[in-house]
């Protein structure tokens, strides 16, 4: 048994040393979901700083084990016992500068394969695909705050993470999602926020923005 900071990359991802690249990827996506700093599964167990450190190690593990040459080199170190502190441990500075967890880029084929397995991917992590919700998103014509919030929760995206990523104040997102139009800034800003929000949620940004701005115009007029 060992502390997570001293686990091998395989132990961190909870996979065997013979795991295929697909298994590495699936384990990584699952671990990123479990150990996101705001994940309920780590409530009262890991502090935010520890979660950031753990995520840093998970990223390292994935980057090494999903890369053929890097993995071979790492395996060799494990076999020869040269494994002591191979990870680049996250320092306090890393923690302070840590960006919200953003997924490494996946190829369209990767995404198709994961979708086939019922796993949807966003910039921030994964979610379980529900065909009924997917259909509803396709058919939806009116994109108000309530619907945007529903999509965000469905896609397992934390509001704080989204705010940090887009560098937009949380109060603005709260006002958008709650249809609290009186608290929204000037129209030109709202358009920008809604557009960025829609893009992050993987929705048709033009369609969403037009719909939301029509609702806002009706209220403000």
């Amino acid at each position: 048994m060992s502390d997570f900071k001293e686990q091998t990359y395989y132990e961190l991802l909870e996979i065997s040393t013979s795991a295929s690249t697909d298994e590495v990827q699936q384990a990584y996506l699952r671990a990123k979901g479990i150990y996101a700093p705001d994940s309920p599964a780590i409530y009262t167990i890991f502090s935010r700083d520890e979660a950031v450190q753990l995520n840093h190690l998970l990223d390292e593990a994935y980057q090494t084990l999903s890369h053929h040459a890097k993995r071979r080199e790492y395996d060799l170190k494990l076999q020869t016992g040269n494994y002591t502190v191979i990870h680049d441990k996250a320092t306090t500075a890393d923690v302070q500068q840590a960006k919200p967890a953003v997924m490494p880029s996946l190829t369209p084929d990767d995404k198709k394969e994961l979708a086939r397995q019922g796993i949807g991917i966003t910039k921030f992590g994964q979610y379980t695909i529900d065909p009924m919700v997917e259909h509803e998103m396709q058919q939806q014509q009116m994109f108000d705050g309530t619907f945007l919030k529903k999509v965000r929760i469905y896609k397992n995206i934390n509001l704080e993470t989204l705010c940090e990523h887009l560098k937009i104040g949380r109060h603005h997102f709260n006002a958008i999602e709650n249809n609290d139009f009186n608290k929204l800034p000037a129209t030109v800003f709202v358009r920008g926020y809604v557009k960025q929000m829609a893009e992050s949620l993987g929705l048709d940004a033009q369609k969403v923005t037009d719909s939301y701005m029509r609702i806002l115009k009706d209220v403000r007029d």
Partner: peptide, 20 residues
């Protein structure tokens, strides 16, 4: 919600990483 299942996987994983 179906994605609540992640919490189940999460508790199992925390047992390994935190509790040994």
């Amino acid at each position: 919600m179906s994605h609540d299942e992640q919490v189940g996987h999460g508790i199992a994983s925390v047992c390994n990483k935190f509790f040994g």
